[in-house]
Amino acid sequence: MNWILIAMVLALLIPIYEVWKDENIWQKMLAFASIASKTSVMILVVSVLRDDWMIGVVGVIILSVGNAGLMLLAHVIKRMNTL
C-alpha cells in the first residue's frame, strides 16, 4: 500500500511548486490551504495503514482545527490590501 502515500507526496509537490513560483499572495494562500488539507489527509491514511488510533485522532483534530489560522491570516492580509 506504499504506492498510495508516494502518489500523495507527488500530489503534495504540486502546491509546493505553486507557492514557490507564484508571486500573488492569494495564490500562495490557496496553495497553503491545499497543503494543509493534503497533509492532514495523509496523516489519516498513515493511521489507517498502521492501525494506530492515536495518530488518527490527531489527524482529525488537525484537519478540523488547523484551518482556523488560515482564516485569521486571510483577514489580516485582506485588511492590508484595503488600506
Binding site: 509546493i16 507557492v19 508571486e23 499572495i25 500562495k28 494562500m29 496553495a31 497553503f32 497543503i35 494543509a36 497533509t39 492532514s40 495523509m42 496523516i43 498513515v46 493511521s47 492515536m54 495518530i55 485522532v57 490527531v58 489527524g59 483534530i61 488537525i62 482545527v65 488547523g66 489560522g69 488560515l70 491570516l73
Partner: peptide, 30 residues
C-alpha cells in the same frame, strides 16, 4: 509571503511528526 510559507512549514512538520509516531508533538505543532 514568509508568513504563508511558515504555515506550510508547520503543516509539513505536523505530518512528519505524526508519521514518525509523535502524535502529541504533531498536535502541538499544528
Amino acid at each position: 509571503h514568509a508568513l504563508v510559507i511558515r504555515g506550510i512549514l508547520g503543516a509539513v512538520a505536523a505530518l512528519v511528526y505524526a508519521v514518525l509516531g509523535a502524535a502529541d508533538v504533531a498536535l502541538t505543532e499544528a
